[in-house]
Amino acid sequence: MKKEHDQGKYKYGMVIDLDKCTGCGTCMVACAAENNVSVRPDESDKQRSISWMQVYKADNGKEFPEAETVYFPRPCMHCEQDGRGGHAPSCVSVCVATATTLDKNTGIVSQIYTRCIGCRYCQAACPYKARYFNWWDAYFPVDKGLERYLSPEVSPRMRGVIEKCSFCHHRLMRARTKAYADGRRKIKENEYITACAEACPAQAITFGDLNNPKHKVAQLIKSKNAFRILERLNTKPKVYYLSSRDWVRKIADNPVDEFSPISG
C-alpha cells in the first residue's frame, strides 16, 4: 500500500460534479465522435450498443412530487487495483492475451484492439460495465459517406473485440507532442483533457493529474462531497464524483449498514 504513491509520476483522473451534470448526453456524443464509435441503426439495444461514456439514470425512489433524478456519467473508471490488493485492475489481470494493461506512469488502462481475441472475460470482470464488445462490424455502410468524419488518431475497431474508454489517450499523445515541439518536458493542466470533459456544456467534468496538488481534480477530490462508485469494492477508480445530495452519494455504493449523511 505504501508503494501506491510512488508507482507513477502521473495519475490522470476525472471528477464529475453531479450537481452540475444535467444528463444532456453531450459527453456521450463527444466521446463517440472523438473515438470513432459507430452508430448502429438501432441504438436502443443498450445491451449491445457501444458508448464508452455512458450516462446512467437513477432516482431517489420517492413518489410524486418528491421524485428526483440524478445522472451518473460513467466512463471507464481506470481502476488501479482489482479489489483484493492486486496492482492491476480486474479487467487487466484477467485478460488472456495481454490486450489491456495499466500504464503505471499515467494510470490509464489501455486496450489493444488488434490484440484482443474477444473472450469477454474482462467484460465479465468489470463491475462498472465499462467494457463494450463489438457484436457487429462498425456501421459504416459503403456509399453512406459516414466514414468521412473518422479521425485518424483513433484506430477503428473490428468486429469481435472489446473496446472501452481510453481517457482519450491520443489526446495525451497530442499534448506530449506539442509540449515536445515547444521544448517543454511537462504538459500543462488543460493541455490534456478528455473529449467529454472538454465538451460538457455544464462544465461538470474536470480532468487532470490526481498526483499534482495544483491540479483542480486533486483539489476537488478532497471535498467532503467527493466519492467514487462502488468504493467498497476497493478497486480504486480514478473517476470521482461530487454531489451535495445525500441520497445520490448513498446510491453510488451498496451500503449494508446505515449511510451516514455528511451535510446537515
Partner: peptide
C-alpha cells in the same frame, strides 16, 4: 465463442 477465433492462438 470468442469474437476473433482467428486470433485464438494469441492466448
Amino acid at each position: 465463442d470468442i469474437g476473433q477465433p482467428i486470433r485464438g492462438w494469441f492466448i
